[in-house]
């Protein structure tokens, strides 16, 4: 197989990791909303924590995207 083609395939595979980040962020905000609807009074205080969690989860997905970009663009 051509090395260039392998890189492109690798980039595509690396992007699957973004799906995991999507699941993670969705879980965080879904659970946040569940909790917020049960106890709306406590919700605003925890929104910051939800954002931190989402950022941490999303960061891992971004890593896979960076890997994909490296494969795509770095010669």
């Amino acid at each position: 197989m051509d090395a260039e083609a392998a890189k492109l395939i690798g980039a595509g595979i690396a992007c699957i990791g973004m799906g995991g980040a999507g699941i993670g962020v969705g879980t965080i905000f879904g659970n946040y909303l569940t909790g917020a609807l049960r106890n709306p009074a406590a919700a605003p205080a925890q929104f910051t924590n939800a954002l931190i969690g989402a950022a941490l989860a999303e960061g891992l997905g971004i890593f896979s995207l960076v890997v994909a970009l490296l494969l795509l663009f770095v010669k």
């Binding site: 960061g59 971004i62 960076v66």
Partner: peptide, 16 residues
């Protein structure tokens, strides 16, 4: 690593 790469990756990916 995660602190720097998160910001970098988000900006890079969004603009691309």
């Amino acid at each position: 690593v995660s602190l720097g790469l998160r910001l970098f990756g988000n900006m890079l990916a969004g603009h691309i």
